[in-house]
């Protein structure tokens, strides 16, 4: 699942705002496909956002989070050029991570 994460992190000098979009089906397990068979639940369980190695947000998601999940939050500190990492793991054990820099 390489390349599943899009993230924008921008610092205004005192705080950093992070927006991310993760490419993931987030199948709830309650939807049927065209042939009438249930599509098994497949969703991200844990997402971790870290700034320079320190966790700034941990998200726990159930299957009720929308497909291609969006997250927005902000934290004190962080400056342009700092590293920001996003990582996720889903209920089937798939995972992905991305390291980017704050703009």
């Amino acid at each position: 699942m390489a390349g599943s994460i899009l993230v924008r992190a921008s610092s205004d000098g005192t705080a950093t705002t992070v927006q991310s979009l993760i490419h993931h089906p987030m199948d709830s397990g309650f939807i049927k496909d065209a042939s009438g068979a249930l599509i098994p639940a497949h969703y991200i369980e844990v997402v971790q956002f870290a700034h320079a190695g320190t966790v700034v947000l941990t998200a726990f998601w159930g299957p009720a989070v929308s497909k291609d999940p969006f997250t927005k939050f902000s934290f004190q500190g962080g400056k342009s050029g700092d590293a920001l990492t996003v990582s996720w793991v889903d209920n089937l054990g798939n995972k992905d991570s991305l390291s980017t820099t704050i703009s």
């Binding site: 299957p63 989070v65 929308s66 927005k72 902000s74 004190q76």
Partner: peptide, 10 residues
Amino acid sequence: TKSAVSSRIK
């Protein structure tokens, strides 16, 4: 971390 989070849910 600021006390504000945005998400999209079903």
